[in-house]
């Protein structure tokens, strides 16, 4: 394909140079913040200077006494688990239908279910607060989980629909013609084949719920304070180094979970 004559292909060289440079800058910018916060969290000083003058585990030890932060983390974890379960339970059947049918109703569903990705989540959170209030309730964990489910379910839908479209329909026909019922076909053929897609979606939904601020901002009260909001307030009011340690914990857990998700569900393949 390249020109066999000796003339140097300056176009190929310049394209490579420009694209390589842009991509390199982008990748450095993508990875640097994670590394910086991880290194900073091991500082031995009271300030957030980077690079730290010395290293210690003192701020991680301080986390052990941070009751409020621990409570917030526990709340976030419970809410994220409930949200993920709800997303998978409601999202999987919907994805199966959405991957199979081009019915106008299904198309309408597609637009509706994906719209939380585009609409400002903060406006939706505020709408949720007004709604709960006008119904005569107060914000609670239940409403928080329902609100999170709305904004997290698109992740499960996307990966599950993608997995469904790669499923060979002949397998389902074979199962049915061999006498398996609709339910048996689902359980023994469809589900095992799309399980990785569901798992990847569940992982993304979990992370999105655990990290959600715009909806929690309105639907959480003092008793159900969640971790990202607690950290956000800490950063806004005083730059406490304990926040860096908490960030370090979150980064390490995220990395660990990502590696597990990559090994078991092939996360990076499912996200494309």
């Amino acid at each position: 394909m390249s020109d066999p004559r000796a003339r140097p292909d300056w176009e190929a060289v310049s394209l490579r140079l420009v694209f390589g440079l842009l991509a390199a800058v982008a990748l450095i910018f993508l990875v640097a913040p994670t590394l910086v916060i991880l290194i900073t969290s091991f500082t031995d000083s009271e300030s957030l200077r980077f690079p730290p003058t010395g290293f210690s585990l003192r701020w991680y030890e301080a986390l052990l006494d941070a009751d409020q932060m621990q409570r917030a983390a526990w709340n976030s974890l419970q809410i994220a688990v409930c949200t993920t379960l709800l997303c998978v339970l409601l999202g999987t059947p919907a994805s199966i239908a959405m991957a199979r049918s081009r019915h106008p109703w299904i198309r309408a569903c597609d637009v509706l279910f994906m719209s939380p990705l585009l609409l400002p989540a903060l406006a939706f959170g505020f709408a949720g607060l007004i709604f709960v209030n006008q119904m005569g309730f107060r914000p609670s964990v239940t409403f928080l989980v329902l609100g999170h489910t709305i904004v997290c379910v698109p992740f499960v839908l996307r990966t599950t629909i993608a997995a469904m479209t790669q499923l060979d329909p002949a397998l389902l026909d074979a199962s049915r013609s061999l006498g398996a019922s609709e339910w048996t076909t689902f359980r023994r053929v469809t589900l095992p084949l799309i399980a990785k897609g569901i798992a990847a979606g569940a992982f993304l939904a979990f992370m999105a719920s655990f990290d959600n601020v715009p909806v929690s901002l309105f639907l959480a009260d003092e008793r159900t304070e969640v971790l990202p909001i607690h950290l956000w307030q800490q950063i806004e009011s005083n730059l406490d180094v304990r926040t860096a340690a908490a960030s370090g914990v979150i980064v390490m857990l995220t990395l660990g979970l990502m590696i597990i998700a990559e090994r078991t569900a092939g996360l990076t393949r499912q996200m494309r």
């Binding site: 990875v31 994670t34 916060i37 900073t40 990202p228």
Partner: peptide, 20 residues
């Protein structure tokens, strides 16, 4: 590497940018 940042908590990432 591309996906890593979107899964890391946005509060954590933003906090890191304050340091940077």
């Amino acid at each position: 590497l591309v996906v890593l940042p979107i899964l890391t908590s946005v509060v954590v990432r933003t906090f890191s940018w304050i340091v940077i």
